[in-house]
Design a binder for these strands. Sequence first.
DNA 1: CAGAATCCCCATTGATACTG
DNA 2: CAGTATCAATGGGGATTCTG
Lengths: 146, 146
Amino acid sequence: MAVQVTRKEPLVTSATTLTARFSDWQETGFDATRCPIRNVLDRLGDRWTTLVLIALAGRPLRFNEIRRTVPDISKRMLTQTLRHLERDGMATRHVFPTKPPSVEYRLSPLGISVLDPLSSLVDWAENRFAEINRARIAFDATAGTR
Amino acid sequence: MAVQVTRKEPLVTSATTLTARFSDWQETGFDATRCPIRNVLDRLGDRWTTLVLIALAGRPLRFNEIRRTVPDISKRMLTQTLRHLERDGMATRHVFPTKPPSVEYRLSPLGISVLDPLSSLVDWAENRFAEINRARIAFDATAGTR
DNA sequence: CAGAATCCCCATTGATACTG
DNA sequence: CAGTATCAATGGGGATTCTG
């Protein structure tokens, strides 16, 4: 069972470690409460979290500043996304008792720490974007014949 | 407009480049066909793609081998996930004309290339998992008072 | 074995209205 | 300004059935 690594030469170095840890998660049945992929990456993979994280990467922003930065997010989803980030310890919320109230959101050290791996993935996405688009066009062109 | 970077000392190096590119995407209104984050990461962020990619990281696998590797994926979703990976040029599909037929899936160079940034994010998730869980418990404990 | 096709559900999201 | 509450809709995903 688990992932059998029969191949002598792994695809890339990261593949070996990924595969090894995959076996561990697999034994838990990918229990969402214990598998980091499910538990953490599912959240980063939702519609808004990544965009809000990047928006806050530059500097702390207030609620409506974030809304203007991510134009098509609704107040409802922004509130929810920020609560999730706050709950996960990725962002902190500071209320200034002005009137009307102003609330500033700021990445915590934990939130800042995710920017680096996130940036790697964004780099990859940008660098490979053209290649992916070409693959899609090629695939769709032969869609009828397959 | 866009993301105003007034801070002199960026949070981390990656934050600066992320913020800069964020402005570019923002000007397109995050058009899904042009914004790499929306277009590429939304796919990586779905329920199964990452798990299937990691499953294939070790070695090429046949359809039902992947199913056994990712226990709770349905045939429907596995087919769909594999088609997406194939369409994006991340995996290739090889049909062996045996009876019954066997079909092998294998990561392409493009698919292999994503393992590295993906691994960075998985590393982060594992290393910070305990910290995130503590934050969640602390947050939930004060949920009633806030 | 490796799918394709169909039906259906519910979780995520959006839109709207209301509030301290 | 920064939310909350409620309702409605969309589509991702599961279960099942059928097939080369």
